[in-house]
Design a protein around this nucleic acid. Sequence first.
DNA 1: TAAACTAATTGTAATGATTACAAAGTAAGA
DNA 2: TCTTACTTTGTAATCATTACAATTAGTTTA
Lengths: 147, 147
Amino acid sequence: MSDVTLRGALDTLKENGVRITPQRHAILEYLVTSKSHPTADEIYKSLASTFPNMSVATVYNNLRVFQGVNLIKELPYGDSSSRFDFVTHDHYHIICTECDKIVDFHYPGLEEVEHLASHVTGFQVNAHRMEVYGTCPICAGNVTETH
Amino acid sequence: MSDVTLRGALDTLKENGVRITPQRHAILEYLVTSKSHPTADEIYKSLASTFPNMSVATVYNNLRVFQGVNLIKELPYGDSSSRFDFVTHDHYHIICTECDKIVDFHYPGLEEVEHLASHVTGFQVNAHRMEVYGTCPICAGNVTETH
DNA sequence: TAAACTAATTGTAATGATTACAAAGTAAGA
DNA sequence: TCTTACTTTGTAATCATTACAATTAGTTTA
Ligand SMILES: [Mn+2]
Ligand SMILES: [Mn+2]
Ligand SMILES: [Zn+2]
Ligand SMILES: [Zn+2]
């Protein structure tokens, strides 16, 4: 099924006239299959064995290309490096402030907030971002490690 | 009235055993009176005339001290520098993606999202962040400049 | 196909915000 | 006063990201 997702992503590139190079294919595949939210450096390091000569600049370049055609979203964080999320459907993130784990969750209906914000500020609204912070079950000690 | 706010902030420092140095007083005053969301560098530059010898490290150090006693909040952004918000009451931000203007707005009741997130992920929830992005009236050209 | 043009990658230097750290200064207590 | 902890300062280091020039690869044109 992530096979299908990858194929769809490659189609999107084609439709937008973006060449599918081996590097792009590999970066995209990594984003789709690793269901995590990797940093540019994580992608770079993970592909180093397959592409020993790939430049870190190539990773950044192509992450920007992918953002340009809405295949991925950047999650910028102030202190550390940005993380990248392959876009399937809209969702939010909850982040453990102890171990930095990021978990997806769904919540409907924050368009209401967008409307209100637009109404009281006069802005034209395009998007919003929302993140919940807390402690994950493992860090909270509520869960016995699997053995 | 921002006089009162500043005095309250200084009290908070005292209560927490944090010394009130001239630099701390000035940085805090700047945060309270400028109702904006300044960067560390903006604070540093604005106080340069009064404190020609103040180090930029002092600004960062004290911004962290103020965060420690919940007087201010950091708004980290991936690409550019963090902005700092003097904490009065809870509110959200709407940000113009053209000119980077930040405007406060209020919205009640996102505790519901926290609850749901906690329920579906098992996290203990502490906080959330939410920002709306769009185009401000001036950048959208809906407003004639004041003259 | 060869030449010409365009897009993509690479390597490396530069940028810029933030932090680390050591030295010097300042307040406070015994 | 002596001692200790706290604070500031100046500067070097860090680290993610970007800029840029050179090289390579792909595509179009003749
Ligand atoms: Mn996600
Ligand atoms: Mn604010
Ligand atoms: Zn955790
Ligand atoms: Zn604007």
